[in-house]
Lab assay of single mutants.
Amino acid sequence: KELVSALYDYQEKSPREVTMKKGDILTLLNSTNKDWWKVEVNGRQGFVPAAYVKKL
């Protein structure tokens, strides 16, 4: 599985998104959309802005 690192804090703005803190390591589930990537963090799945994470 592919991992990404959070470059910035992000506070979810809808139920489809997830909150992350800078430095968090997230499991990348889907990166086909260039703007929003689906990740899993702390057992929750949702979307984060692609520009806020980088692949490890």
Rank of each mutant, 00 (worst) to 15 (best):
G46D: 00
K38Y: 15
K54C: 15
G23W: 05
D9H: 06
K38N: 07
A6K: 00
Q45R: 11
A6E: 00
N33K: 07
E17H: 07
L28T: 01
V4F: 12
L26W: 02
V41L: 15
M20Q: 02
D9G: 06
D24R: 02
G43D: 06
G43K: 05
D35K: 13
F47S: 03
P15I: 10
A6G: 03
R44F: 07
S5P: 03
A6Q: 00
Y8Q: 12
A51C: 14
K54A: 13
K21L: 08
W37R: 01
V18P: 01
Q45A: 11
V48E: 00
N33Q: 09
G46S: 02
K21P: 00
A51M: 12
P49V: 02
L7S: 05
N30K: 07
V41F: 15
G23E: 03
L7I: 11
G23A: 03
E40K: 05
V41S: 12
L28D: 00
S5C: 15
Y10T: 01
T27G: 06
P15V: 10
Y52M: 14
I25C: 07
A50F: 02
W37L: 05
N42E: 10
G23R: 03
V53Y: 01
Q11E: 14
T19S: 15
S5D: 04
K21A: 09
V4Q: 02
W37N: 01
P15M: 09
L3N: 06
G43M: 05
V18E: 01
V41K: 13
T32E: 15
F47R: 03
K34R: 12
P49W: 03
V39R: 00
L3P: 04
A6M: 02
P49M: 03
L3S: 07
G43Q: 06
V53M: 05
T27E: 10
A6D: 00
N30S: 13
S14N: 12
L7M: 10
K1I: 14
S5G: 09
L3T: 09
T32G: 10
I25D: 02
G46T: 02
G43H: 06
Q11S: 12
L29P: 00
M20W: 02
L3G: 04
F47K: 02
L7F: 04
L29K: 04
A50M: 05
T27H: 10
K13E: 08
V4L: 12
K13G: 09
